[in-house]
C-alpha cells in the first residue's frame, strides 16, 4: 500500500516536471503542441548516452539533459514553432505530430527500438527501511528533487518580475502586449525552460516511466490531462493534477491490471467533460 502510494507520488511528480512546460505553450500561445513529450524523450536519451557510454556522474547527466533539451527547445521555437503561432489548430496538430514521428524515427535509427536501461549510482539504489516498510531510495530522491523544482517554479512565478509578466501574458496576451510586455520573447524563454524541464523529467524518468521511441506518443495523453485539468497560470494546478494522475495510474496498474490504460483514458474523458473550465474553457472562449 505504502509502496503504491510512493510509486504513484513519484510518477506524479515526474509527470508534473514533464508537462509543466506544455501548460505554458497551450495557455500562453494557444498552441497545440503534441510534440512536448519529444523533449522528454530527448532528455532521457541524452542521459542514457552520457551515463552509460561516457560514464559521467548521474547528476551531471541530469543537468546536461536539462540544458541541452532547453537549448533544443529554444532552437526549435525560433526556427519552426514561431511560424505557426496564430495559425489553425489543425496545422499545429499536424506540425507537432510530424515532429513526434521524426523524433521517434531518428531515435529508433540511432538507438534501436528497445527499452533503455540505466544503472543508478549506488547512493541512489537500494531501499531504506522506514517503519518496517522498504522504500526505494530513488523514489524518495525523485520526490525530493521534484518538490524542490515545484517550490522554485512557484516562487519564480509569484515573486519575480519575469513571473508576474508571464502570468499577465497567460491571462490576456492582448492586454499584456498593450502594456509593453514582450510576449514573444517571454514565450521563447518560457518554451526553452519548459523544454528543459521536460528533458530533465525524461532523464529522471528513465528508471520509472521507461524510455523507448514511443515515449512521446505514449505519454502525450498524460501531459494533455495534466494541462487540461490543471490550468495554466499557476504551477499548483498542474502539480495537483499530475499527482492525482500518477496515483490513479499506478494504483490502477497495481490493483486492476486487467483494465490496462482504460481507466486513465476514461478518467481523461470524464474530467474533460466534468471540468471543462480552466484552461480549456478559456482557450475556447478566445
Amino acid at each position: 500500500m505504502l509502496t503504491v502510494l510512493l510509486d504513484g507520488l513519484a510518477a506524479g511528480m515526474l509527470l508534473f516536471v514533464l508537462s509543466v512546460g506544455l501548460s505554458v505553450t497551450l495557455g500562453l500561445m494557444n498552441f497545440v503542441n503534441l510534440a512536448h513529450g519529444a523533449f522528454g524523450m530527448a532528455g532521457g536519451y541524452l542521459c542514457v548516452v552520457l551515463l552509460n557510454r561516457l560514464g559521467l556522474p548521474f547528476l551531471a547527466c541530469l543537468l546536461a539533459a536539462a540544458l541541452c533539451t532547453g537549448l533544443l527547445g529554444l532552437a526549435l521555437e525560433r526556427l519552426l514553432y514561431r511560424r505557426l503561432y496564430g495559425r489553425d489548430h489543425l496545422e499545429q496538430v499536424l506540425f507537432s505530430i510530424g515532429l513526434v514521428f521524426i523524433a521517434g524515427a531518428a531515435v529508433d535509427w540511432l538507438m534501436g527500438a528497445r527499452q533503455q536501461l540505466i544503472t543508478l549510482p549506488p547512493w541512489l539504489s537500494g531501499r531504506v527501511e522506514l517503519g518496517g516498510v522498504g522504500l526505494g531510495v530513488y523514489r524518495l530522491f525523485l520526490i525530493a528533487v521534484c518538490t524542490g523544482l515545484l517550490l522554485a517554479l512557484h516562487l519564480g512565478l509569484v515573486r519575480t518580475r519575469f513571473g508576474s509578466r508571464l502570468r499577465a501574458a497567460v491571462d490576456d496576451a492582448v492586454v499584456a502586449r498593450g502594456l509593453g510586455i514582450p510576449v514573444e520573447r517571454l514565450f521563447a524563454v518560457t518554451f526553452a525552460l519548459g523544454s528543459g524541464l521536460a528533458g530533465l523529467g525524461g532523464a529522471l524518468g528513465v528508471e520509472v516511466l521507461g524510455l523507448d521511441p514511443t515515449f512521446p506518443l505514449k505519454y502525450m495523453v498524460y501531459f494533455l490531462i495534466v494541462v487540461a485539468v490543471g490550468g495554466a497560470n499557476t504551477v499548483i494546478g498542474p502539480f495537483l493534477a499530475a499527482i492525482l494522475l500518477g496515483l490513479v495510474d499506478v494504483a490502477g496498474k497495481y490493483y486492476l491490471p486487467q483494465f490496462g490504460a482504460f481507466g486513465i483514458y476514461t478518467a481523461m474523458v470524464a474530467l474533460l467533460i466534468l471540468r471543462p473550465q480552466g484552461l480549456l474553457a478559456r482557450a475556447a472562449a478566445r
Binding site: L26, V32, H89, L90, V93, V221, L224, A228, A261, F262, Y265, T266, M268, V269, L272, I273, P276, L279, L280, A281, A283, A284, A285
Partner: peptide, 17 residues
C-alpha cells in the same frame, strides 16, 4: 462543446478508450 482544444482532446480520449 465549443473550441478546438476540447474537441481534439475528447476525440483523442474516446478513441484511446
Amino acid at each position: 462543446r465549443g473550441g478546438d482544444l476540447p474537441a481534439l482532446m475528447v476525440t483523442l480520449g474516446l478513441s484511446l478508450m
